[in-house]
């Protein structure tokens, strides 16, 4: 059994060996947080796409943008999802499109839910984990992001949902990245989100800091966003 999964982010896996090897520890949930527009979503897309290229299915929860925007954003980096969608490897739970009116009908791999209905979101996560596990024994998950959920639900409920999502993902032995925009919630809520997460990475626009991951702590490196996505550089 492998202990880490490759992140798919150039330079990231070389940042240091944790107790578990290099990359992102398998079967954990990694919180990526930082100010807006610092590459959190791009990092998570890279992570998902790299898994897909290696035959790992992906369960993706979208709360900030719909499936079309996701496809367009990823296409900008040369990451094409169509084949993976056709092969039922990419499972999307879309919590935003009902609100924006950009609605597609449900399919095998596309489920609509509502931002203010965490119970229903959790039902879709349950169905989704079962689906992706049938497609591949190793799978990844991306939740982009917790930020919008906080705007539509009581803080406590979002944390309850986050814990339930983590439990479901880890039971199914998936590896997940969850994004959160720094400063949106109160310090208390932000600390609660961090304390629940297994690993924490901060992106500030210039530096990527692994605050906690496996045995690693406070490892800092500069990064850039290039046409290959987030690229971590050597100091």
């Amino acid at each position: 059994m492998r202990l880490c999964v490759e992140s798919g982010v150039p330079g990231f896996d070389d940042l240091g060996y944790s107790d578990l090897g290099c990359g992102i520890p398998e079967n954990t949930v990694t919180l990526i947080y930082g100010p807006p527009k610092t590459g959190k979503s791009i990092f998570s897309h890279q992570f998902a796409y790299h898994g897909l290229l290696n035959g790992e299915s992906c369960l993706c929860i979208l709360t900030d943008y719909g499936i079309n925007e996701l496809k367009q954003n990823m296409m900008g980096f040369g990451w094409f999802l169509e084949t993976q969608i056709q092969n039922d490897m990419f499972y999307v739970i879309d919590a935003i499109s009902r609100l924006t009116g950009d609605v597609f009908p449900d399919s095998n791999t596309y489920k609509l839910t509502s931002l203010n209905d965490p119970a229903d979101m959790m039902v879709k996560v349950g169905i989704g984990t079962r689906f992706v596990l049938k497609r591949s024994d190793d799978f990844r998950s991306v939740f982009d992001s917790l930020t919008t959920s906080l705007a539509f639900n009581p803080d406590k409920l979002v944390i309850r949902f986050y814990r339930a999502y983590m439990h479901r993902l880890k039971e199914a032995r998936g590896t997940a990245i969850v994004n959160y925009t720094e400063g949106v919630a109160s310090d208390v809520v932000e600390n609660a989100i961090k304390s629940v997460s297994d690993n924490i990475i901060r992106l500030d626009g210039e530096y990527l800091t692994i605050e906690r991951m496996g045995g690693l702590k406070n490892i800092k490196a500069p990064y850039r966003i290039t046409d290959k996505g987030v690229t971590v550089e050597k100091e």
């Binding site: 119970a119 959790m122 039902v123 996560v125 349950g126 949902f161 339930a164 479901r168």
Partner: peptide, 9 residues
């Protein structure tokens, strides 16, 4: 009373 992950509505 439903466990998270089951829709009881």
């Amino acid at each position: 009373c439903a466990y998270p992950g089951i829709g009881s509505e």
